[in-house]
Amino acid sequence: MIKDFIKGLWRENPILVQVLGMCPTLAVSTKAVFGFSMGLATTFVLISSSVTVALIKKLVPHEVRIATFTVIIATFVTCADYFLKANFYSISKALGPYVPLIVVNCIILGRAEVFASKQNVARSFLDALGMGCGFTLVLIVLGSIRELLGSGTIFNYAILGKGFEHWVVMALPAGAFITLGFLVGLFNWINQKWQR
């Protein structure tokens, strides 16, 4: 059971290993706090839809399962979007169109199809929680690196002094691609060291 949770954090990490859900990962990681909120929103949708799919999997005919999953996911995403707009207005504005884009985050549909539609509720829940945490962790790490080098802060706390010249490129799309590229490389390197 516990393995279902752990695997999402490292061995089957959705971003670093499966290379899924890249679009929100790259887009909202300009600041650590945005990455964190995006991670939480995605985790919420992931857990809710995985549990729902696991609950109703016997009722859904095989031919329309993808359509069913998509509607379920889109419903939860709309809920998350309105909730953020109602209670965390400024964060919701910063994330912009990337909250509705959770609908097409392949991680969620992928987990529904590969895991939740075949397993029981408890295991699906743990699996979704693990994947969500793994996703959030990478977003926070990526967001922190980009925020630190791009504006000298982490979670809006000043880390590097005033003399630090901001690397504007880190806040730009190019910085996102390159940082994540090296992060994936670092991850593979650590894994290779371990295996030896």
Binding site: V64, T68, V71, I72, T78, C79, Y82, F83, K85, A86
Partner: peptide
């Protein structure tokens, strides 16, 4: 298939109306 999709559509619609009612005054 038709029944499942219809019920799902109705439930999803109902859930969204509910959240919309809750959120729009706050927004």
């Amino acid at each position: 298939m038709i029944i499942v999709l219809t019920v799902l559509g109705l439930l999803s619609g109902a859930a969204l109306v509910f959240i919309y009612r809750y959120a729009s005054p706050l927004i």
